[in-house]
Design a protein around this nucleic acid. Structure first.
Lengths: 114, 114
DNA sequence: CAGCATCCCTCCCGATACTG
DNA sequence: CAGTATCGGGAGGGATGCTG
């Protein structure tokens, strides 16, 4: 857990935690299920293993997700939301609503231009 | 208004729109007031004119904010939220709650380690 | 299966200086 | 006052190949 986000404005903190290009997507997928590494990869095909690994490490360090490794062959690793991660759900819901509205707005604009 | 965010998942869209390092902070400040360029600069001292200008242009292109220029000497330019921008407020509120909780969580952890 | 090591590269951001 | 022009650095993201 890093400590340099200390004592800041909530928005500064939030911005730092969401900078990652994929954070939101990962949070979204984990908000409904615990998922294995491979499942996440399939859910997010535009992102390579390397990048996914880095993102997951970051989010684990930030305390947003929990990594559970089972010592077995073949390996099995599961990712789930932490307590803090679960409390992030309202943000996800608000973002989904807004994102959908934004897309709708773009579409209507495009139609207007035809 | 760019068109390449078309037909995507709301989360992908949202992530793209929030990539900017300062987007959230600017949205927060504009959510309560219309502000002039200088006022924004003073409210966000860690960000240079160049960067602020670029961010504002991006957000204007995205349709999140509205730029109003008055043709006068000295120049006067005001920034405010667009319709879409106003609808972003629920996200801001959810983020504030969560950011505050996150900070509190960090603090309690730090105390545990002392 | 779930990574790590390495290298690379782009784009974001910032510093500085100048303008209508 | 509210910018633009130019240059540059660095971090985040990606491609490839290898491993327990």
């Amino acid at each position: 857990m890093q400590e340099d986000l200390f004592g800041e404005c909530p928005y500064v903190t939030a911005q730092k935690l969401l900078t990652g290009k994929w954070t939101l997507l990962i949070m979204h997928h984990l908000s409904t299920n615990t998922m294995r590494f491979n499942e996440l990869q399939r859910a997010l095909p535009d992102l390579t293993q390397t990048t996914l690994t880095k993102q997951l490490r970051m989010m684990e360090d930030n305390g947003m997700i929990i990594r559970t490794a089972y010592n077995q062959i073949p390996p099995k690793v599961e990712y789930s939301l932490s307590e803090l991660g679960h409390h992030f759900k309202p943000v996800l819901e608000a973002l989904q609503v807004w994102g959908a509205e934004y897309i709708g707005y773009l579409k209507s604009n495009k139609c207007d231009n035809l």
